[in-house]
Amino acid sequence: MSAPVRTVSAEAVDDIVLPFAVEGLSTRGRLVRLGPAIHAVLERHGYPEPVSKLLAEAATLAILLGSTLKEEGRFQLQTKSDGPVSMLLVDFDAPSNVRALARFDRARVARAASGDDLVGHGHLAFTIDPGGDLSRYQGVVALEGLGLEAAAHSYFERSEQIPTLVRLAVGETVTAAGRSWRAGGLIVQHLPSAGPGRRADFHPGDAPEGTEPHRLDEDDAWTEAKALASTTEAHELIDPTLSAERLLFRLFNERGVRVFEPTRLAAQCRCSAEGVDAMLRSFPPEEIAHMVGDDGMIGVTCEFCSTKRVFNPADYGVSSP
């Protein structure tokens, strides 16, 4: 049964993951477009601009990789390194929620010559918790001072052995309302098991109707898919006026690209007053006493979303000083 053919949508939508397939090239992938969601994540922290940009790249990469999980799954990306940004931590709760934080040396960040210098050398870990009774999985790859894109490529080359191309882009738009962060990402993977090419929902170029599609060997197919995907410009990934579908059409229209239902994304922390309360109740009274501030209360601030919650020490068997 042939896939339906329809017109490419020109509607630009932010905060989505759009899965796609170029079946004639045995290639699948996902396109991420982030607007208000990534701006909310970064504005909560007020990090220096280079740190915000790096954290947005990490969040985009985490969404690209974690968006294959089922609804109850969780994906975590974490770096530990000797660079000015010593740690990046991104949690993606499938299918849509993301939160992130960074730890860094402000003076070293100011002296860094480029964004890649911020990461330094260390390791990048991906932790996958598919939920249910399934086991957790962790993949680790070295950070070698070349940035997150290079680390992702190294991971797939050495660990997954799936031909993969990853593109990440972060920038700001300036309007009368002010400055706003944006991010975008593209992952393209060669999956020969996807089977023979089928009719796509975007017309494959200007060939006459009824023309038999050109079949390629798998290696040649990936070479072509990678070459096409590599033409993606950073500004295209974050352009608020360019729809995700139109960008995919630009890249793959000669071979036909099939898109699937997009998933909406949101900046959403999983912290809660109930969770903090349960944590406090796990501490003995003597440790609780050390948490009491000058105002006689216990203040707990979430590192991810910067939400501060205040608790009465009397509720935990401790008298105020």
Results as ranks from 00 to 15, higher is better:
Gly132Ala: 07
Pro84Asn: 10
Ala225Lys: 11
His214Ser: 02
Gly171Ala: 07
His235Asp: 12
Gly73Phe: 08
Thr241Met: 11
Ala266Gly: 04
Ser230Arg: 11
Pro313Thr: 04
Val170Phe: 01
Pro95Asp: 09
Leu25His: 04
Arg136Cys: 02
Ser272Thr: 05
Asp129Leu: 05
Phe304Cys: 02
Arg258Gln: 13
Gly132Trp: 05
Gly296Asp: 08
Gly139Thr: 02
Pro285Ser: 01
Ala151Arg: 04
Ala58Phe: 02
Cys302Met: 11
Glu49Tyr: 03
Gly120Ile: 09
Arg33Lys: 13
Gly139Asn: 09
Arg182Gly: 07
Arg108Ser: 15
Ser319Ala: 14
Arg44Cys: 10
Ala40Tyr: 03
Arg258Cys: 03
Val141Asn: 02
Gly120Phe: 12
Ala176Asp: 14
Leu61Ser: 01
Glu72Arg: 12
Ala152Tyr: 04
Leu168Gln: 04
Ala266Pro: 00
Lys308Cys: 03
Arg99Leu: 11
Glu274Thr: 05
Gly66Arg: 01
Pro262Arg: 10
Phe260Ala: 06
Glu303Asn: 10
Glu209Gln: 13
Phe75Gln: 02
Thr68Asp: 15
Gly210Leu: 07
Ser272Asp: 05
Pro84Gln: 04
Ala112Phe: 12
Ala40Pro: 03
Pro285Cys: 02
Ala113Glu: 14
Asp129Ile: 00
Leu191Thr: 02
Thr307Glu: 15
Leu124Asn: 05
Gly29Leu: 04
Gln138Glu: 15
Pro84Val: 11
Val41Gln: 06
Thr79Asn: 09
Val259Cys: 13
Ala207His: 14
Glu23Leu: 13
Glu157Trp: 04
Arg309Glu: 12
Ser67Gln: 10
Asn97Ala: 15
Ala221Cys: 01
Gly317Lys: 05
Arg74Glu: 08
Glu43Ile: 00
Gly197Glu: 06
Arg103Asn: 08
Ala244Lys: 01
Thr60Tyr: 05
Ser282Arg: 14
Ala194Gln: 09
Ala151Thr: 06
Arg33Ile: 02
Val5Tyr: 01
Thr223Cys: 08
Phe156Pro: 00
Ser81His: 11
Phe20Ala: 14
Leu168Gly: 01
Ala225Met: 04
His190Lys: 11
Val300Pro: 00
Gly73His: 07
Arg6Thr: 08
Thr231Phe: 07
Pro163Val: 04
Pro204Gln: 03
Asp82Glu: 10
Pro36Asn: 09
Arg28Lys: 05
Ala3Glu: 09
Asp116Glu: 14
Val22Met: 03
Leu186Cys: 03
Gln268Cys: 08
Val141Thr: 15
Gln189Glu: 15
Val292Asp: 12
Gly73Ala: 05
Gly66Pro: 04
Gly122Ala: 14
Thr231Met: 14
His123Val: 09
Ala227Gly: 07
Gly195Gln: 03
Gly132Met: 08
Thr223Lys: 12
Asp91Glu: 12
Asn312Leu: 09
Leu64Tyr: 06
Leu89Lys: 10
Cys305Gln: 12
Asp91Phe: 15
Arg30Ala: 13
His203Thr: 12
Phe75Glu: 02
Asp91Tyr: 15
Gly139Glu: 04
Gly178Cys: 09
Glu245Gly: 03
Arg158Gly: 01
Phe249Ala: 14
Leu146Arg: 15
Gly29Cys: 01
Thr307Asn: 15
Leu134Met: 12
Gly24Leu: 08
Asp82Lys: 09
Ala150Val: 07
Gly195Met: 03
Asp239Trp: 00
Asp93His: 15
Pro48Val: 05
Gln138Arg: 15
Leu168Glu: 04
